[in-house]
């Protein structure tokens, strides 16, 4: 293990649903800015976070087009966090639970996302400085 911390996070919440998602991404952002090595095991609904077919939309109620609405997409956050971590000497390794992906039909993921199983979470945690499980309710 190097001096740079490696932190593993297990996360279960889908995009656009709970405050936990924002807090989870805030934690990843802190790690990325510090140049830490970040490992994520996405389980259940969280496997849709890096789904590459997410699309921004307009907001007709407020009279804004897609550009003005500037709808946030988690897949873009993950890509940006990966860049930020690498720019600072760290990394972001994202593993999606394969069965959870198949259940939801969200196979299309952004570059850099791999497919695994809960056994990979065990391996990631074993090789990390520390781990945090953020369970859904």
């Amino acid at each position: 293990m190097t001096d740079t911390p490696t932190l593993t996070f297990a996360f279960m919440d889908p995009p656009f649903e709970t405050g936990r998602t924002a807090t989870f991404f805030r934690l990843l952002d802190i790690c990325a800015r510090r140049g830490y090595h970040i490992k994520v095991f996405a389980y259940e609904g969280a496997v849709a976070l890096p789904f590459s077919q997410q699309k921004p939309h307009a907001n007709a109620v407020h009279g804004r087009d897609a550009s003005e609405e500037n709808h946030p997409l988690p897949k873009d956050w993950i890509a940006a966090l990966t860049e930020e971590a690498e720019r600072n000497g760290g990394s972001l390794n994202w593993v999606n639970c394969g069965l959870c992906v198949d259940e939801r039909g969200v196979n299309a993921a952004i570059d850099g996302v791999s497919r695994g199983s809960p056994a990979d979470f065990w391996k990631l945690a074993a090789a990390s400085t520390n781990s945090l499980v953020i369970p859904t309710r």
């Binding site: 802190i30 790690c31 400085t129 945090l132 369970p135």
Partner: peptide, 17 residues
Amino acid sequence: LLDVVVDAMADGTKTIW
């Protein structure tokens, strides 16, 4: 700041959500 969580994890503190 939320940094306390990352600080604790990097320090090996048992962290539970």
